[in-house]
Amino acid sequence: MPKIVVVGSINMDLVVLTPRYPGLGETLTGERFANFAGGKGANQAVAAARLGADVTLIGCVGNDAFGRELSARLLAEKVDTTWIDIADDVATGVAVITVAGHDNAIVVVPGANHRLRPEHVAAAERVIRDADVVLSQLEVPMDTVLAAARMARKYDKPFILNPAPAQPLDTELLDCLTLITPNEFELARSLGREQADLAELLTRLPGRVIMTRGVDGASYCDAAGQLRHQPSFKVDAVDSTGAGDTFNAALATFWHLGIGEAARRACAASALSVTRLGAQGGMPTLAELDQFLASRS
């Protein structure tokens, strides 16, 4: 079992389905309400655990009902929550999602996620030292992400960054990265080259970029500078929420197999994840992934 440390966000997603969006000042009766465990850090931790990894999550929740519920759900998924801090003076992060037809509108309140500090990473130095891969995203403060990247480099551990939400990355963080996993927009924004073409972007960090392309799979540049493409797997999609998080978790879990095989398994896991509802609800187990790949060979 690869040991993976995830440094990232933990949210409760509050989802309301409505026939249309309410107007300003209007009270509208909704059709359905549900809440789901979310946050890119928690999503990726759960996905990696289901794929067979030994996962530790470094994050922060509030001292409230959502924080307790989310921590319990992570434990139920066999994610080590030892290093999840509890903030007494701020609420657990939430995403309030209104779904009308095929569109949605989202308001994210980061809450306790923005209280995750470099000192929390420093306190967990032992688990990073013993990890096989460190995985992070950008829903927690940038200095915390950089602290995790520095710690991974100190112990010569692979550091994988999912650069979402997109923002420019400084040179030191780019230098610390083993792999960056953006979509095309995120890649251009991360590198500060929004006018560059795809081939130029992919070859700027040879062997260290794999770009997700939705139904077109993923593209990457190998260590020799050769552009490669991993096709997607055709499935009947139900809900694409969490597909990117599943992709990143699978890359980290199978990183020891090399970028090509890790990308193949990540695309397959991501495809499986869209066949069921919910970000974490659709994430496959290792047995499901193996069966799926065997059926496509």
Results as ranks from 00 to 15, higher is better:
residue 212 T to V: 09
residue 96 V to I: 15
residue 49 A to F: 04
residue 89 D to R: 15
residue 38 G to V: 05
residue 82 T to L: 09
residue 17 L to S: 13
residue 247 F to T: 03
residue 118 P to E: 09
residue 152 A to T: 06
residue 210 I to C: 03
residue 294 A to W: 01
residue 240 S to C: 08
residue 8 G to H: 04
residue 37 A to C: 13
residue 175 D to E: 14
residue 89 D to K: 13
residue 111 G to T: 13
residue 24 L to K: 13
residue 181 T to D: 02
residue 247 F to P: 00
residue 245 D to R: 05
residue 264 R to I: 01
residue 25 G to W: 01
residue 205 L to Q: 12
residue 290 D to Y: 05
residue 93 G to A: 06
residue 41 G to W: 01
residue 158 P to W: 07
residue 48 A to F: 04
residue 269 A to M: 10
residue 51 L to S: 03
residue 6 V to I: 11
residue 71 S to K: 11
residue 211 M to P: 00
residue 179 L to G: 10
residue 258 G to Q: 03
residue 158 P to F: 06
residue 39 G to P: 02
residue 168 P to I: 10
residue 150 R to L: 08
residue 202 L to G: 00
residue 96 V to M: 14
residue 13 D to W: 04
residue 13 D to N: 13
residue 290 D to E: 14
residue 241 T to W: 07
residue 81 T to I: 09
residue 216 D to V: 08
residue 240 S to G: 06
residue 176 C to A: 09
residue 245 D to S: 10
residue 28 L to P: 01
residue 137 Q to W: 01
residue 2 P to W: 10
residue 252 A to N: 05
residue 94 V to S: 03
residue 235 V to G: 02
residue 108 V to I: 15
residue 71 S to A: 11
residue 279 A to V: 13
residue 293 L to V: 10
residue 77 E to Q: 09
residue 152 A to R: 00
residue 73 R to Q: 15
residue 187 L to F: 12
residue 24 L to Q: 11
residue 136 S to V: 10
residue 116 L to P: 01
residue 131 A to Y: 01
residue 34 A to Q: 14
residue 166 A to N: 13
residue 32 R to P: 09
residue 278 G to W: 13
residue 7 V to A: 01
residue 46 V to L: 06
residue 12 M to Y: 05
residue 88 D to W: 04
residue 270 S to M: 01
residue 234 K to S: 15
residue 126 R to G: 09
residue 171 T to N: 11
residue 132 D to I: 05
residue 26 E to I: 14
residue 158 P to D: 08
residue 94 V to K: 00
residue 24 L to D: 11
residue 249 A to N: 03
residue 207 G to A: 12
residue 145 V to H: 01
residue 139 E to A: 03
residue 270 S to E: 02
residue 88 D to E: 14
residue 275 T to H: 00
residue 8 G to N: 02
residue 67 G to T: 00
